[in-house]
């Protein structure tokens, strides 16, 4: 009998040359920061304040502000603040985040 992988050797067929299980260590390791908890959503935008955080990418301010204005018009919210990061490649500065605390909801975007 010829096994397609092991050939004619019956000893190997009987499993004396079988490969044993192996235990491997996983590469990611542990995470050092606690998972972020998303802020609770709002059940209604009526009367709420909306902020816009421009992420620094081309046309982001136009797009995000237009979205915020239309949402405000439809829901009775108020567009309270339009601000932006210094660069797209770095997190928003602490002062920018402090300004945005005045808004109940923030419209922003990621990537290009």
């Amino acid at each position: 009998m010829r096994d397609p992988e092991l050939g004619h050797d019956e000893e190997r067929h009987r499993g004396s040359g079988a490969v044993s299980a192996v235990r491997v260590l996983t590469p990611p390791g542990t995470v050092v920061t606690s998972p972020l908890v998303a802020a609770p959503g709002v059940s209604s935008l009526g009367g709420q304040s909306i902020g816009v955080l421009d992420n620094g990418k081309p046309n982001a301010r136009l797009l995000l502000t237009t979205i915020a204005e239309r949402v405000a018009a439809r829901t009775g919210a108020t567009l309270a603040l339009v601000t932006g990061k210094a660069t797209a490649a770095e997190p928003a500065e602490p002062e920018i985040l402090r300004q945005l605390e005045a808004a109940r909801v923030v419209v922003t975007g990621s990537a290009d």
Binding site: V19, S20, A21, V22, R23, V24, L25, T26
Partner: peptide, 12 residues
């Protein structure tokens, strides 16, 4: 998943 050690059938 995120466990530190996983058993595989072999090292192939």
């Amino acid at each position: 998943g995120d466990d530190e050690v996983v058993e595989l059938a072999d090292e192939s």
